[in-house]
Design a protein around this nucleic acid. Structure first.
Lengths: 119, 119
DNA sequence: CTCCTGTCTCGATGTTCGTCTAATCAGTGA
DNA sequence: TCACTGATTAGACGAACATCGAGACAGGAG
């Protein structure tokens, strides 16, 4: 699959860090969608495995560490893909995933805050 | 309320950025809990309103911009509070919220990635 | 061509989440 | 003390989500 176009267009963000200006409804919806994709322990671990790997990750390596079925991992990878956080490609028998670092950078920057201020 | 101790102990994080090392199950659970708190458009907007305000924010100012009832806003603020992202205090008639910037910095750092690498 | 392995899609089920209304708690002022 | 305003809690309902098993699809090997 992977070559089907699922969402994933906007890699970079759309808004200033939340500490600088309040998000409008539209920006909040896009940001919340990305956070929702990371709001599951399994998906967050998958994301970290893919992001920390040097290059690409094979689904066959991503599945074993978890106590859930293959289809469930496949489902979670799909959610990450639809959020634009990872992308994938089939090569021969196996499917490989890699991180979309611009997207990660964007949400990271969205949460960045000026060290401290008030409280 | 606010003075009831709800979760909110760990302000700083526990793990290295996901791009440097894969999260273990425990770290993923804590991270996912924080992302879950931000995974709703209303909560993300609330968080950004509180974080971008200079100092504190009154609930009476946070409620009007949304099309949901007061109790619903109160519920969302509670979720943010339990995730350690904000804290609050009652002063007289009103309740004020402020951001926990260390917590924001932690998740921001968790997602930080070395500019680019593979793909 | 046929079988086998790896991965994804589909449909069903139990749980979690967001929202509401009604009721309760905290603080102010007469 | 009593009434009033601001905010939270409690309980209920519908929608969305995580998970599974079964089946479908893609690619490689005999």
């Amino acid at each position: 699959m992977s070559k089907q176009k699922i969402a994933v267009q906007v890699a970079g963000g759309c808004c200033a860090p939340i500490s600088e200006a309040a998000l409008d409804a539209e920006g909040a919806a896009e940001g919340a969608a990305v956070f929702k994709a990371l709001a599951d322990p399994i998906r967050l671990r998958l994301m970290s495995m893919i992001a920390s790997a040097d290059g690409e990750s094979c689904v066959c390596d991503l599945t074993p560490p978890f106590d859930v079925s293959g289809p469930t991992i496949s489902h979670h990878l799909r959610v990450l893909r639809e959020a634009g956080l990872v992308d994938c490609e089939r090569r021969g028998t196996w499917v490989y995933y890699w991180p979309v670092r611009e997207r990660l950078q964007w949400i990271s920057a969205l949460l960045a805050t000026p060290a401290s201020a008030s409280a």
